[in-house]
Amino acid sequence: MSPSLLVEQTLNGVQLGAMLFLMAAGLTLVFGIMNLINLAHGSLYMLGAYFAAAATNATGNFWLGVALALAATALVGAALERLLLRRFYARSHLHQVLVTFGLILVFNEMTRLIAGPAPLKFALPDVLTGSVNIMPGVPYPVFRLVILGVGLLVAAMLYLVIQHTRLGMWIRAGASDRPMAAAMGVDVELIFVAVFSAGAALAGLAGLMAGPVLAVQVGMGEPVLILALVVTVIGGVGSMKGAFVAAMAIGLIDTFGRVLLPPALGAMIIFIAMAAILLWRPQGLFPVHG
């Protein structure tokens, strides 16, 4: 592999990692705070892409579409938490998995009924199409650089909010000892809605950024959900730092695995990596709960 190709593939890996981080961040946030396994996270990702595509196609303005889609997915997230999922915080994980799996089916079928089975068109504005030379003779799509940038930006913002604000302190308190945090006067109900909508918006953001790169279609959330679950588990469930490190690791391992290994092994490599890491650290890289 030539040096320029190595740089390009590393960039591809980091960009995939940034994408996975956006998905895993919401998942791990919700699990860390509410102890809720939300398999419907992939559906929120799909909704983000559909909202953005539909709003962009309707208004003709990509940026307006993005803003509407983010607000809409956050709203769906809040409604989901208030109307349904809050009833499941105290239930076992099996119940949570069942109800959120059911939600996947409901969201997929509803999307198919409303938008039809064919993938939606979602074009980028001119300023984001095309490519720039990251090195002489190595063009790289502008939009992928945007994904990379947004992913890193969101990671930095989450870090600031969680480590250096009062809200973040409450979130961390809720994650490590919920009853104690509630007893100390933290409005847990409010935190839960806020965190769930934020998680939904993160999934929506990942989805709407995937929209121009991938097919906007029913079921687009599930393959990403699986990868996000892998990332969450490797990183240590509930750990934002873990999600970031694991997302980057999986992005790079997957990219180089696909390029360097035979196809069957390349497809399995991230799962092999997961098994190996869990063998070494059963709680993930950065365990949160005991």
Binding site: L5, N12, G13, T255, R258, V259, P263
Partner: peptide, 20 residues
């Protein structure tokens, strides 16, 4: 000659190899 996983989403790595 490259075979990718059925249902693969992202082809950036393969496209970079191709261009090279």
């Amino acid at each position: 000659e490259v075979y990718t996983t059925f249902g693969q989403l992202d082809y950036a790595a393969e496209i970079a190899q191709l261009r090279s």
